[in-house]
Nucleic acid binder design. Structure first.
Lengths: 263, 263
DNA sequence: CGGTGTGAAAGGTTTCACAGCT
DNA sequence: AGCTGTGAAACCTTTCACACCG
């Protein structure tokens, strides 16, 4: 995901696998829910179920953080919440800026899940002068001209890009130049950034395409009894998005099969 | 990601690795851009750069689909677009329903990236009676009561959940009961579904937390010359989200180190 | 020559299964 | 007895490097 970072061997054994890091927020959410219900301890089995993973994975994950459980008992909920929060860096709060206040940007600004973790929307930025000053989610939108000043003044290091694809790289460059080192990109483009800057991307259309792939497989696999007359039109005939095949064009001999030429 | 699917050994050698499937949409996007610029062929190196991966990976990925390139030349852009589209199941179009037309749901309804691939928003559904009939992105919102009928009538097999977390499981159950077999979930909850139903989740807050983790590491690593007086307040003192440690409660011996007791 | 296609090596992730602590 | 913590096995993914072909 990073661009060219040499993946330093980590300060030492502090090497928490990327796959584990990606699951810590899941555990944290499940633990927070337990905490709110005042559940004092939880076993790996229960917590794993709540987080949607299996217990072996969870225990292995936690083993990278240290030994925070008690054998024969389980994990202390409050204590784990604290340890994971600390590991994720959520015990400090992170000001973020959102650039591009269209439908999606507005949705993000209104999203409660940010504030509840350590994130604070420090500013909303948009290129449209007509939007400047208008409040979205209670925060006045500022013009792109102010971008550098906003970032410096608020000590922002995380930026969210929710602009159209065409503007994303340019916005990204300015964010990086202004000192931002982590970017969450919603624009459907590959961003190029210097070493040391992290980019994560969220792409709605890609997720749907992955689902479509599996969905297609299911359709072709109707072997057993059709559980129920599903409302799908089985195998629609066609809808050539790219004009049909258009084969790879041979070199010489045997071409010109296009015209009619019966012997 | 699936719940209990036995991960069937695939019809045979049709086993395209999951990691590869997840990248096909990236390649497709890059290829579409080339196609629009009427570029006829592209090398693995060029295409890989455009898609943000390395060329070895790309060639390996394509090798699972078949041999669609020409040695010494590269890949025929149009032909590859077609092959990947077909592999992803995008040569047919997929009606989708979006449930939960809040900020995010509206953003999704307006998102152009769906239509441009093989996806068509067949209906928008919301539980709020006040929204019923109001058009969003040119499509009238329908009430949740209609959910089953909408899905059956339109032969929908893909659903998008953009409701609050509390409603998600219930909506999910109804979608599944109505015949939907692929779900894209934006609600911050773990959904449980029967075997055979695919769920993919997109979680904004989780992505930010992963960024925060890496961001924190960077801060602790300021070894070399500080490239520039970045506008960050280095290491904020604290902000106990969970009350501090609250250690795991020892059993006996050696406790009560809390009081002062200098020898 | 240049660039694909692919075995084989290296690296990362998940699962297993059980020793060891409470 | 029960549940964590963890080596070791199994599996998956990425990278290497080069044979092969246009």
């Amino acid at each position: 995901m990073a661009t060219g970072r040499t993946h330093r061997p980590a300060t030492r054994s502090r090497g928490i696998p990327e796959a584990t890091v990606a699951r810590l927020p899941l555990y944290l959410r499940a633990l927070t829910a337990l905490s709110e219900r005042s559940v004092p301890t939880v076993s790996s089995e229960e917590l794993a179920t709540a987080a949607g993973v299996n217990s072996a994975k969870l225990r292995k994950d936690f083993s990278y953080l240290g030994s925070y459980g008690t054998r024969g008992v389980g994990y202390d909920v409050e204590y784990l919440v604290y340890q994971i929060s600390r590991e994720l860096g959520l015990t400090q709060d992170w000001p973020v800026v959102i650039v591009g206040i269209g439908n999606l940007g507005a949705a993000l600004a209104n999203y409660g899940g940010f504030a509840s973790r350590g994130f604070r929307v420090a500013a909303l930025i948009d290129a449209d002068p007509a939007m400047a000053g208008k409040p979205v989610a209670g925060i006045p939108v500022q013009h792109t001209d102010e971008l550098e000043k906003i970032i410096t003044d608020n000590g922002v290091s995380i930026g969210v890009i929710a602009t159209p694809a065409g503007a994303a790289q340019q916005v990204c460059d300015r964010l990086v130049a202004a000192g931002i080192t982590s970017i969450l990109n919603f624009a459907p483009t590959v961003l190029s950034v210097p070493d040391g800057v992290d980019v994560r991307k969220v792409d709605l259309s890609i997720e749907l395409q992955i689902l479509a792939f599996h969905e297609q497989r299911k359709a072709g696999e109707e072997v057993g009894a059709p559980r129920r007359p599903r409302g799908r039109f089985h195998r629609r005939p066609w809808r050539p998005i790219a004009r049909p095949p258009a084969p790879p064009a041979p070199t010489a001999a045997g071409k010109d099969l296009t015209g009619t030429c019966p012997p």
